[in-house]
Design a protein around this nucleic acid. Structure first.
Length: 662
DNA sequence: TTTAGGG
DNA sequence: CCCTAAA
């Protein structure tokens, strides 16, 4: 996108990068929502768990569909209804709500076989199509109402959105009514050989990504409280009109994006406001959240098949080992009830089943005119970037992080049943400078292991606070609803270069990503469904968006030519279309660039900036320091006389320090 | 609004 | 990135 401005032909221009959200900048804002949320999560997961069991039960009795790796668990309508009754009801009704409630309905008229087949070996697996499908399937299995010819699946964007009435306790109770483990075990045995899911889902950690929109604080509460309505992904017109949106969006840079494609570039403005008025790339926020999306799937584990709802529940068939279900950020485990004796006798093994990992929050910025296809790719890029950017796993036991990597599981207590229940894993971004803040044990707001790591909280908070920024973009429907065929050729959203570095390795893992929910092929008008403006004061800090190398390049070039002190011009010149970059940002960036260039490479952080660029930074910096850019610029109107780069390069020998990096 | 700097 | 004093 962006980069319309020709940078003198010399600059390759830059593209607005898709930057994975760096947890590092997690701002701890109010945590008010967290507590409640955390509870709900548990409730949700519990319910999901229940559903899983029920499902299992139903399934087994109804003959095994396991014939060929069908990952789609179908759950007879009745079963669900009966079991959930009230909850179900509320759920459904909620599901019918507008997208604001985070629920979508998926009309899916396909046969299991198709899906199975698809999942098994679809060439699209790599393209992201899998995401769509898997999402569908995954979700389908959660709450699926099966009809003779078509199914309606209620999907929760942000997890199992059961009614707000449910609380942990209640759920716990419910859970206990579920068929015993043995039963489950048996029923699951049938599908033991079934490749429950594509490779990605079985042997390696599953990564679930929840694309969700958190428009504003209201969302959380609303999400649970729900009330009414019919289902539809979104209503293009039922909400605020564009004008309204725009108005609302102007307050802060990171607000809602206008739908319209608009108009011509505003001639003068460059500041945030102006930017907003101009075409503003819709600001999307995909965040994974701890709501724990309802993803139930089967897993084959040494002949046993575990059905879990995000790790809430897992059963083991192998008495000599433990199986631990991992769930997203936090994972829950349950130790089989098998006899311990034989277990200890042998060389005990701790089996850990990671149901899914949620990837850190993603922030994607794409133009309104971007196609769904490109959006998909963008997301994929972002995801791979995150994965490749250096993720490491953190192990939590009883809410505490285990730092000693050399200790054995036995030593750390991970092998003991009691502890397994409190075992958790968390993905942490290496990009995050933040020291893995140890999770506070007190976090366990709920009875069950539903620890919410600080980081998570942070991001949650952030999302909440950033609320305004999100919007439609995250509307799942927009993300995956469309088919890939539309693979467009518009490169508007080419992902930034900074993804390059990391794309390699993770690529292969991309399959493991389990995006989530979504769907509903509908026009993707990006409709900011929420009207914010609620708590302006909560207004947020803009999300951190590291400059990509190309951006830096563009900046450097512009400064070389314009000099420092003319940020507005720089902005206009090189970042006119980068609405999220204000001249202040550019100025700040330059500031940091200068600093970066002055320090040893080892001290630098973040995506490394090519040394040559840094050299240019120093050159330009020193040059303009002596040449009062302002004066020159104004006076000559053109700085031809004071050619930046080249001249400096030669004139300023200091630059030669290049390799040293300062 | 834009700069310039400190936070 | 944010916040602001100044210009």
């Amino acid at each position: 996108m962006v980069q319309k401005k020709s940078l003198d032909n010399r600059s390759p221009g830059f593209r607005v990068p898709v930057i994975p959200r760096a947890p590092r900048s997690a701002r701890k804002r109010s945590l008010h929502k967290n507590t409640a949320d955390g509870r709900n999560i548990c409730a949700i997961e519990l319910l999901a768990c229940l559903a899983g069991k029920l499902l299992q039960e139903t399934e087994s009795s109804a003959s095994n569909i396991a014939s060929e790796g069908n990952d789609q668990l179908s759950l007879p309508k009745n079963a669900l209804q009966d079991q959930f009754q009230g909850e179900d009801k509320s759920l459904k009704s909620e599901g019918q709500g507008s997208c604001e409630d985070g629920l979508f309905i998926l009309e899916q008229a396909s046969e299991d076989n198709q899906h199975k087949d698809f999942l098994k070996r679809s060439p699209e697996v790599e393209s992201g199509a899998l995401w769509d499908r898997s999402s569908v399937n995954t979700n389908s299995s959660c709450l699926e109402k099966e009809n003779s010819d078509d199914k309606s699946v209620i999907i929760s964007k942000s997890g199992f959105a059961v009614s707000g009435d449910l609380n942990s306790d209640k759920l716990v109770a419910v859970k206990e009514q579920v068929p015993d483990e043995t039963f489950l075990k048996d029923s699951m045995a049938d599908c033991a050989e079934t490749p429950c899911f594509p490779n990605a889902f079985s042997s390696r950690q599953n990564i679930g990504m929840v694309l969700d929109r958190k428009d504003d604080d209201e969302n959380f509460p609303r999400f649970y409280k729900s009330s009414s309505t019919k289902l539809k992904p979104y209503k293009p017109s039922s909400h605020i009109d564009n004008g309204r949106i725009r108005k609302l969006s102007t307050s802060k840079n990171t607000k809602v994006a206008p739908l319209r494609k608009d108009t011509e570039p505003s001639k003068s403005g460059t500041g945030r406001k102006v930017s907003n008025q101009k075409r503003r790339p819709f600001y999307s926020r995909e965040r994974y959240q701890q709501h724990g999306f309802l993803q139930k799937r089967r897993k084959v584990f040494d002949g046993s098949c575990i059905v879990t709802s995000d790790g809430v529940l897992s059963s083991e068939s192998d008495s000599t080992s433990h199986q631990i279900g991992v769930n997203g950020e936090t994972m829950v485990s349950s130790l089989g009830l098998g006899d311990r004796a034989s277990f200890e006798a042998k060389n005990p093994q701790v089996k850990i089943s990671i149901k899914s990992f949620k990837i850190p929050e993603l922030l994607i910025d794409v133009p309104e005119t971007a196609t769904v296809g490109s959006l998909k790719r963008t997301i994929m890029e972002a995801v791979t970037t995150i994965l490749g950017g250096g993720l490491h796993v953190g192990v939590l036991l009883r809410g505490k992080k285990i730092h000693d990597d050399n200790r054995t599981l036995l030593q750390t207590g991970i092998s003991s049943k009691e502890n397994l229940d409190t075992l958790g894993f968390i993905l942490e971004s290496s990009l995050t400078q933040s020291h893995p803040s140890s999770i506070t044990p007190q976090d366990s707001t709920c009875t069950l292991p539903c620890h919410i790591p600080e980081q998570l909280k942070g991001s949650l908070d952030k999302s909440v606070s950033d609320s305004g920024a999100c919007d439609s973009a995250s509307n799942p429907a927009n993300l995956t609803g469309m088919c890939n065929d539309i693979v467009d050729s518009t490169h508007e959203l080419t992902v930034s270069s900074n993804t390059d570095n990391a794309t390699d390795k993770p690529l292969s893992d991309s399959r493991a990503l389990v995006p989530v929910p979504e769907i509903n092929p509908e026009p993707l008008a990006i409709v900011p469904t929420n009207q914010k403006g609620k708590h302006p004061e909560l207004s947020h800090r803009r999300i951190r968006r590291p400059f990509s190398v190309s951006e830096v390049e563009a900046l450097v070039q512009a400064v070389e030519q314009l000099g420092t002190g003319r940020w507005r011009d720089v902005k206009l010149r090189a970042f006119e279309n980068a609405d999220h970059r204000t001249y202040v940002d550019l100025k700040d960036k330059w500031k940091t660039l200068v600093h970066t260039a002055s320090i040893a490479p080892q001290q630098r952080r973040g995506e490394p900036v090519p040394q040559d660029l840094l050299d240019r930074v120093l050159s330009a910096h020193s040059y303009w320091s002596q040449h009062q850019s302002k004066q020159n610029g104004k006076a000559s109107g053109r700085m031809a006389q004071t050619p930046p780069k080249m001249i400096k390069a030669n004139a300023v020998p200091e630059n030669v320090i290049t390799d040293i990096g300062g």
